[in-house]
Design a protein around this nucleic acid. Sequence first.
DNA 1: GCCGTTTTCGGCCCGACTGTTTTCAGTCG
Length: 586
Amino acid sequence: MDKAAIAAVLEEIGTLLELQGENPFKVRAYHNGARALSALEGDLGGRIAANTLGDAPGLGEALVEKITTLFQTGRLKYYDDLKAGIPPGLVEMLGVPGLGPKKIRALHEQLGVDSLAKLTEACTADKVAALPGFGAKTQEKILAGIRNREAYSRRHLWWDAWHAAEPILAGLRKLREVEQAEHAGSLRRGLETVGDLDFLVAAEKPGPVMDWFCAQPGVEAVTAKGDTKASVRLADGLQADLRVVPVEQFYFALHHFTGSKDHNVKMRSRALARGLSLSEWGLTPKDDPSAGGPGARSVIRARSEDDIFKKLGLHPVPPELREGLDEIARAEAGALPTLLDESDLRGAFHNHTSASDGRATLEEMAAAADALGWEYLGMADHSKSSFQAHGLEEERLLAQVEKIRQLNQSKKFRVHVFAGSEVDILKDGALDFDDSVLAQLDYVVAAVHNRYGQGADEAAMTQRIVRALEHPRVTMLAHLTGRLLLEREGYLVNVERVIDAAVANGKMIELNANPRRLDMDWRHWRHAADKGVLCVINPDAHSPEGLEYVRAGVRVGRKGWLTKEKVFNTRGLKDVRKFLKRAQEK
DNA sequence: GCCGTTTTCGGCCCGACTGTTTTCAGTCG
């Protein structure tokens, strides 16, 4: 069993224990353990053999033993027994908003409810409202939750969430009562998908802000509204939360609602070790009775989040890095990178025109790149095997190359256009064009577009990609796994081996910035870049507007700890030309 | 179940909101 599968088992054990009413800290230990295992870099088998698995924080004796058993045998009796004792319907019930382990247990023990169907039945028969601790409103909420659970539990692409959040944030900032407003949560951290929107506002009078928020045109339902906190449901089931705090509390709250759970736990522990208590209210002496409440007397006045980090002896941690991995240890050592910024990009290489499956002409794309102030634009239409995308055969490709050369000579646009191709990697790892054709291009983006039944054969897919990377004409590898976020899993591929092959052959790996892809995943970038892989952030644009996807790519690159130096398309035109020329001469 | 610059035992982040309660439990983030 591999690392991801084992992590999933640990995660499930945690959930099952929770439903069993186990000690919540034990439950958390399993969830933490699952994350710790997922975050582990390198080869799991090697770690087990070297007996160093327990060195990872969060993995103690018991978890190491269970992970080892699962790794070696693929089975775990403890897990099987646990699973056998809990109806699968109870796990499903956790997905209903408002239902947690305690309520589910009560429903199961007192009404024999063990599935969503029986739960619906019990609600309809008014049996749920009669249970102690339940009532008519709870029963109604459960029914609504079951009806809408798919829409409500769905996550949303970062790009979509961003565009839903921007007008609300702009509107909040315009209100007279609002002194400061920000969004927080996974949106601010730049996670590839977002569960809900979090808005944070500093204002002395929350009332008008709350009212404005709940009355927004996009609001379909107000699900909660108190004095300082409100939740609403927007179109598409996207939930948005607003919190209003006093101005002196703003940066404490912003930090609190931005960090992942793990990051916050680590920050609080760090504060405690210094005799301080950190909460969204402020940073107070540990024994101060006002701590953690509205009267909190903070030991510092935070004028930025940086002030909070500074007080705890840390260099400021950018929001994208606050996932609770090792960013705090690195911040303590002053070893955080200066992350890449949107303004660092000078162009991009993987884009399409209407010659294949794009919606705009070469000239329209060049004009859009000019408008963005880019120095260069790489056109890489599909190759002939991608007939579903009207891939270009040799003749059309060479005609396009000629057209690009003429366009550059005409000086019609400021931007320099590079002639490339997104060349299919065929089933056996060969490329879709002969070397004589590839030699006439400025660069080659190699890409897998069909799985040929290799979707489930990791070794075959890995070999296919590695072989392509060994081809002297290939410049960069496109969308490593072919995943489509929230739609389709990527094919199985040994990322580690692909990274090694890229390093060995001096090939770039793309960070495909299309919001539906964001592939290679940010979780691999730090490690890959450390090994020497050069990143290229490509929008995979099929229209002029699509070029802007690079903004999503930069977010994800930042999450992957990438600096400007590690991203190829931050380089100026002169450097890029020289690099590509040298690569083609090899 | 994990962890240790007071601890190998006894902690483990903590507040808002809701709905159910007459003072709080459960859920959520």
